[in-house]
Design a protein around this nucleic acid. Structure first.
Lengths: 213, 213
DNA sequence: TAGATTGTTAATCGATTAACAATC
DNA sequence: TAGATTGTTAATCGATTAACAATC
C-alpha cells in the first residue's frame, strides 16, 4: 500500500473495535458514535476517530458510523474478509484445549474468521488421532501441509525447549505469522510476525499490582 | 511505596527479564550485562538499565549484574517472593486445559511462583469432580473460598455472556487481580486489575500483517 | 436551522534511545 | 592501569488528548 506505516498500537485496537461493532450489530444497532464505540472498547473517543482516520473517512459528521458498513471496512483492513487457515503445533494439554476451544468458538461465532484446520505433533503415538474432526499429522510434513492447505498462521503450543527449532521449521515452511504460547523469545526472520501469549507473564504482571493495593 | 508511579510498560518487561535470568541461572551463568540480558529479552540494553534503575542500583560498572542476586531482587519487586494463590472460574474446555497446563508447569518449574489451588464452575454436574488433584467447587461459594484459601488472582475462562456478572462477583469477593480469557471488556472497580488474554484478538492482529508481506 | 459528531491539527504527555561521566 | 559496563541525563521519537472548524 502507499500509506505511511500504520503503528502497531493502532492495529492492536482494530480487533477490539470489531468485537464491539459485532456486539452492537447483534443488538441491531445501526449507528454508533466514536463516543459509544470508545466507551465499549475502553478507548478515548478522539483516539477511535484518529485510528479509523488512518484508513479513510468512514463516518458522517453529526451522525456517527454505520455499524455494518464499518464492520466490513475493518474486516477488509484487517485482512479478515476471507477464510484464514490456521495450524497448531504441539498437541499437549494446552494445544488440545486450544484446538477444541478454537473450533467451538469458530462454529458458534461466524465472525471468528480464523479457522483451525490442521494439527501437528512429533509424537508418533498421536499421529492419526482425532481432535473433534481434525487429524493429528506428523510435524515433519508441515511444509507440504502448509502448501496443500494454504496455512497462513501457526499456533505453537510446544515445550519451551523445542520452541526455537519448531519456529525455524515453521518459518522455513513459508509461514509469516506465529502465535507463540511457549515461554521463550523466538528468533525468526524479520518478515515473520510473532505474537507472544505466555500466560505466566500476565500472571506475574498481575502479582505486581497486588502490592500497592 | 514512596516511589514515583512505575509505568506499566516497565512492569510488563520485568517478568521477561526474570525469565531470561532464570534461563541464565540454569546455564550456570553468574554474571550478565544489560547488553546480553537485553538481547535475550528482545529489549535495548539502555532500556534494560533504565527499567532496573527505577528500583535501585543492582549492577556494577564494568562488570554487569549478578544473575542470582538480580533474580531475587526482581522477585521481591514483582511481589513473587512468596506463594501466590490463584483460582480459576469456568471449567470448560479452555479452563480445564489451562488448569492442567498451569499445574504441570508449576510442578516442573519451581520458578513459576503462581499456584493454581481452586477451581469453580456453576454447573452442578461438575461440582466435586477432580482435575488432577483439584476439586471443582460451586461458583456461589467463591467468597468463602477466597478467604479460606487466600486466593489473590482469578483466571476467568467463562463464556463472554457471563463474564461481566462473574467479574462482579469476583470483585465483590475481594479479588484485586483477574486474568480474563473471555472476549469482552470487563467493567470493574478501579482497584481491580484486569489482564486480557483473548486469543482471537492476537490471531486477528496477525492476520493484518499477512497483507503487507 | 440547531445540535451533534466527525476528521484533523496542535499541544501534551510518555516512552525509548543516544551519549557519556562515573567507576568497577 | 585499561577496558568494560553501569546509572543517568538530555534528545528524540511516538502516541494520546484537547480543541475546533467543517458539515451532516
Amino acid at each position: 500500500m502507499h500509506w505511511k506505516k500504520i503503528p502497531d498500537a493502532v492495529i492492536r485496537r482494530l480487533p477490539i473495535y470489531l468485537r464491539v461493532l459485532e456486539e452492537a450489530s447483534r443488538e441491531n444497532q445501526k449507528l454508533i458514535s466514536s463516543q459509544a464505540l470508545g466507551e465499549r472498547a475502553g478507548v478515548a473517543p478522539a483516539l477511535v476517530r484518529k485510528d479509523l482516520a488512518w484508513f479513510g473517512e468512514f463516518g458522517k459528521q453529526g451522525v456517527g458510523y454505520q455499524v455494518n458498513y464499518l464492520i466490513n471496512e475493518l474486516c477488509s483492513i484487517m485482512n479478515l474478509d476471507r477464510k484464514v487457515c490456521v495450524g497448531l503445533v504441539g498437541v499437549g494439554s494446552l494445544g488440545y484445549a486450544l484446538a477444541r476451544y478454537h473450533r467451538a468458538r469458530a462454529l458458534r461465532e461466524p465472525s471468528f474468521r480464523t479457522h483451525l484446520v490442521a494439527l501437528f505433533d512429533n509424537d508418533p503415538v498421536k499421529w492419526g488421532q482425532m481432535v473433534d474432526d481434525l487429524e493429528i499429522w506428523p510435524f515433519d510434513i508441515i511444509k507440504d501441509k502448509v502448501k496443500e492447505m494454504n496455512l497462513e498462521v501457526i499456533i505453537m503450543t510446544v515445550p519451551a525447549e523445542h520452541a526455537q527449532s519448531v519456529a525455524d521449521r515453521v518459518a522455513e515452511a513459508g509461514i509469516k505469522a506465529v502465535l507463540n504460547f511457549a515461554p521463550t523469545k523466538l528468533n525468526v526472520p524479520s518478515d515473520v510476525q510473532v505474537a507472544d501469549a505466555d500466560v505466566s507473564l500476565e500472571l506475574q504482571r498481575l502479582a505486581y499490582y497486588l502490592k500497592s493495593n
